[in-house]
């Protein structure tokens, strides 16, 4: 229970930090903000690696689900950061 309260506090503080940070992003950068923050939400990849690799011998379902989750999350992360980089470089060119 105590651990849960710590995690919940972490969550609440991070939401407030996010609100403070993101209200400062100018409208011009809203699309890269979405694709970039989207890539960050691919952090589920950590959970996916643990699920796929944790060696649950008793079933094939768990590693399979983990594998699918890794593929999804990796696409999310790789494509997200790369396409954000591509967009942001365009904004830099004349700036």
């Amino acid at each position: 229970m105590e651990a849960f309260i710590v995690l919940l506090s972490l969550f609440a503080l991070a939401v407030f930090l996010g609100v403070e940070l993101i209200t400062k992003v100018p409208p011009t950068l809203h699309t890269p903000l979405m694709s970039g923050s989207n890539a960050i939400s691919g952090i589920t990849i950590v959970g996916a690696i643990l699920a796929a690799g944790s060696g649950d011998e008793s079933s094939t379902v768990v590693p399979l689900l983990g594998f699918v989750a890794i593929v999804f999350a990796t696409i999310n992360v790789v494509a997200g950061f790369m396409v954000t980089n591509r967009m942001l470089k365009m904004f830099k060119r004349r700036g």
């Binding site: 995690l7 996010g18 952090i43 589920t44």
Partner: peptide
């Protein structure tokens, strides 16, 4: 999973989406 990095990043992205 009780994982701090997932919670922090998820909260940041959630806040970002809600503001937009």
């Amino acid at each position: 999973m009780g994982n701090n990095v997932l919670i922090i990043s998820g909260a940041l992205v959630g806040a970002s989406g809600l503001i937009l």
